[in-house]
């Protein structure tokens, strides 16, 4: 598994230009719209991690790596687990880069990130959890059909992250007494640390289920 993570790490280094571009766009966005700085870290981590993840699986597809790795002495379940572990690696890289950019931005423009609706740490966690949730929803489809056939789902799940709050918001206005609103109120009433823990536990639980499902699917695949 270590070698597969190393492969993803090497592939990451092929994307520096793209990452710089993403970062520059995000910085422009932050400076142009300082009311949205709360979500700077969340967006930065989500976008960078997602870009690295998408790029890694598209490189795998381009090089037909399933044939290569399945010819090597490694179990298929290990190949699947390595892909799930890479999700943590991408978030680590995203976090490092966003801290770097955040630090530089604040040095250039002190007070840019004030006042924050949430701490930088919470914002980062929000980005990481969003990325993990979208990826673990997508990966069983990827292992079932491969990158080419499943990428439409990847894009759909990616954009759903931006649209879900809008949908929930409009539902809240349309049905004020709904179960949905009660659920939102319930979560709003909870302290931040509890929400963060619940989010991480949800990722862990869904991640394990998704990984198990992907292992079953991938073990049956033929190349």
């Amino acid at each position: 598994m270590r070698n597969l993570l190393l492969k993803d790490l090497i592939l990451t280094t092929r994307n520096w230009l793209f990452l710089l571009l993403c970062t520059a766009l995000l910085i422009i966005f932050v400076f142009a719209n300082s009311t949205q700085t709360t979500f700077f870290y969340a967006m930065e981590i989500f976008v960078i991690s997602y870009a690295l993840f998408s790029s890694a699986i598209s490189y795998d597809d381009k090089n037909n790596s399933d044939i290569l790795f399945n010819s090597l002495p490694i179990k298929r379940s290990r190949i699947v687990m390595a892909r799930y572990l890479s999700l943590f690696m991408f978030v680590l890289i995203g976090t490092f880069l966003s801290l770097l950019i955040g630090g530089v931005s604040q040095a250039v423009h002190p007070g840019l990130f004030q006042p924050l609706m949430m701490s930088a740490q919470q914002s980062m966690l929000m980005g990481a959890i969003s990325f993990w949730l979208t990826s673990i929803l997508y990966l069983p489809l990827y292992f079932k059909w491969g990158y080419q056939k499943s990428r439409v789902f990847n894009v759909a799940i990616f954009f759903s992250v931006f649209f879900i709050p809008v949908i929930i918001g409009s539902l809240e206005r349309v049905i004020p007494q709904s179960i949905l609103k009660k659920a939102i109120d319930f979560f709003r009433g909870q302290p931040a640390w509890m929400l963060e823990t619940e989010g991480l536990l949800l990722v862990l639980l869904l991640g394990c289920l998704s990984c198990f499902l992907s292992c079953v699917i991938y073990n049956k695949r033929e190349f």
Partner: peptide, 12 residues
């Protein structure tokens, strides 16, 4: 093993 096509990463 050796395949008729290259399955190594082109970018490496």
């Amino acid at each position: 093993f050796v395949y008729d096509q290259n399955h190594f990463y082109d970018e490496f």
